[in-house]
Amino acid sequence: MWRCLLLLCFATSAAAGKPDPQRQRELRSLLKNDCGACHGLTRKGGLGPPLLPEALAGKSDAELLRTIQEGRPGTAMPPWKPFVDADETLWLIEELLRKQPVSMEHGG
């Protein structure tokens, strides 16, 4: 219950806590390279599951936020809390749901 409330607080504060452009670049790089290490550069999956919008459809922001922040015990998914705060995580989730990976846009 508390956790849900907390998540709600995070969720509602997301609009206010949008990362600045410099931080957005860092987060995109993190998403591409470090999330990509397991989930693939194009997010089609690897040791970790795919992170494409259709694969994430049906999962709530709260669920995704918790998974990214806390990791998933018993799997290879580590907690990213030491490197991204809740606001930044919500921004990342938006990125994930909104569009296809950046990496392929400037490929070739």
Partner: peptide
């Protein structure tokens, strides 16, 4: 990895000889 290409190099003079492209998703 992101470009989907590889560089052919040589180690005797430490130089890049060529780039071969269109190899798809080369992460990992």
């Amino acid at each position: 990895r992101e470009r989907g290409s590889v560089l052919i190099i040589e180690t005797s003079k430490r130089s890049i000889l060529a780039r071969v492209e269109k190899l798809g998703d080369l992460s990992h």
